[in-house]
C-alpha cells in the first residue's frame, strides 16, 4: 500500500510537470515571436549589460547555508523523537533537552563569532 501511495505521488509529479509545460506549449503556438538583438539582451537599465554576471558572492550566504544544514539535520533527529516520545517517557525528554542544549551552544557560538551578523 505504501508503494501504491507513492505511485500516486509519482503520477502526480508527472502530471504536474505536464500541467506546467502545457500552457508554455500553447503560448509557443499562439504567441508572437519576433526576437531581436536588443530584445533578447539581458535587461539591466536600458543599455548593453556590462561585465560578467556569475561572479563570486559574499561568504555570508555560504555560512548561512552551512548553519541551515546543521539545523536541518537536527530536525531530522527531532521528528522521529517527537513521533515516539509518547512511548519513551521522561528519560527521552532529558536526552532531547541535552541534545537541544548542545545545538543551542552551537548557535550561541556561531552568534558570538559574528556568523549571524549580516553587515
Amino acid at each position: 500500500m505504501i508503494a501504491l501511495n507513492y505511485g500516486f505521488i509519482a503520477i502526480l509529479l508527472v502530471l504536474a510537470i505536464a500541467f506546467a509545460l502545457l500552457p508554455l506549449a500553447i503560448a509557443g503556438l499562439i504567441a508572437p515571436r519576433r526576437p531581436s538583438r536588443d530584445k533578447n539582451d539581458i535587461y539591466e537599465c536600458g543599455l548593453r549589460t556590462q561585465g560578467e554576471t556569475w561572479v563570486r558572492f559574499r561568504v555570508q550566504y555560504y555560512i548561512v547555508a552551512l548553519l541551515f544544514v546543521v539545523f536541518d539535520i537536527e530536525t531530522v533527529f527531532l521528528y522521529p523523537w517527537a513521533v515516539s516520545y509518547g512511548g519513551l517517557g521522561t528519560f527521552a525528554l532529558v536526552e532531547m533537552v541535552i541534545f537541544l542544549l548542545m545545538l543551542a551552544v552551537a548557535l550561541v557560538y556561531a552568534w558570538a563569532k559574528g556568523v549571524l551578523r549580516w553587515f
Binding site: 503560448a27 508572437p32 533578447n40 539581458i42 535587461y43
Partner: peptide, 13 residues
C-alpha cells in the same frame, strides 16, 4: 493575455 504574450528568453541565458 498572458498566454498570448511573447516568451522572451535572453540569448545569454
Amino acid at each position: 493575455k498572458l498566454i498570448s504574450k511573447e516568451d522572451i528568453v535572453p540569448s545569454a541565458a
